[in-house]
């Protein structure tokens, strides 16, 4: 179980995240939603351990994290995916090709990653993550710049991976609808604090806070 207690993050005296207590069960699929600057990315970065923070955070097991501004490596698509793997070359390449097939990029395996489009790049970044095993998977707006078709591919690949591995999945997204498709629990952040903690259906149909109502109403129409 992931546990956060009295977690606080500030940049130049500006508090961007303040969480008293948060528990995420093993294997749970959770989405973080909220406006820009609400603290979604910061929370993911803290769980991933890539930025310093105040407070207590306990994340058991291997954590994989796909940042919002993920960088594609200046090498082939295939090498991007095999780079984080260890073992024999043939085995690594087979695993990578499988991940590329799932993300619809297998035909582009020998292209340089920097020549891919934005949507293809997002799928490659995901394939690079999904080729590894993990206990906790953190995705920061994985479909931020992706079209509908690409979004569907990414969501299906993520769902298949998390179901197969039984890992805890935490996704940051602007869309409560995507939160509904990917998870069974959603946390809405407002100015760095937890505003709503419920099921995606509850958030969409019956938000408790004024901010929640305003945020969700934009997605209803």
């Amino acid at each position: 179980m992931i546990e956060l207690k009295n977690v606080n993050k500030s940049y130049s005296e500006r508090t961007v995240l303040c969480i008293d207590s948060l528990e995420i069960k093993k294997g749970e699929r959770l989405s973080l939603t909220g406006a820009n600057g609400s603290g979604k990315s910061t929370l993911l970065k803290i769980i991933a351990g890539v930025i310093p923070y105040n407070g207590k955070v306990n994340v058991p097991g291997r954590v994989l994290y796909m940042p919002q501004k993920t960088v594609l490596f200046d090498m082939s698509v295939l090498h991007n995916v095999t780079y984080s793997l260890t073992g024999k070359r043939k085995e690594k390449e087979e695993k990578a090709m499988e991940a590329l097939r799932k993300t619809g990029l297998s035909e582009l395996y020998n292209k340089n990653a920097l020549t891919l489009s934005g949507g293809e790049g997002a799928r490659l970044a995901l394939a690079r993550i999904l080729v590894n095993d993990c206990d906790v998977l953190l995705l920061d707006e994985p479909t931020g710049a992706v079209d509908i078709e690409g979004t569907e591919i990414i969501e299906n690949a993520v769902k298949e991976y998390s179901e197969k591995n039984g890992c805890t999945l935490i996704t940051a997204t602007h869309s409560p609808l995507q939160a509904k498709r990917l998870s069974r629990r959603v946390i809405m952040l407002e100015k760095g604090e937890i505003a709503e903690d419920c099921t995606p259906e509850e958030l969409l149909l019956n938000p408790k806070t004024d901010f929640g109502k305003k945020f969700v109403s934009m997605w209803r129409y």
Binding site: G49, V50, V63, P67, T70, Y83, S84, R128, C134
Partner: peptide, 12 residues
Amino acid sequence: KNLSETAKGLCL
């Protein structure tokens, strides 16, 4: 910064 986060995210 972004490359560092990407590398850490992949547990390199």
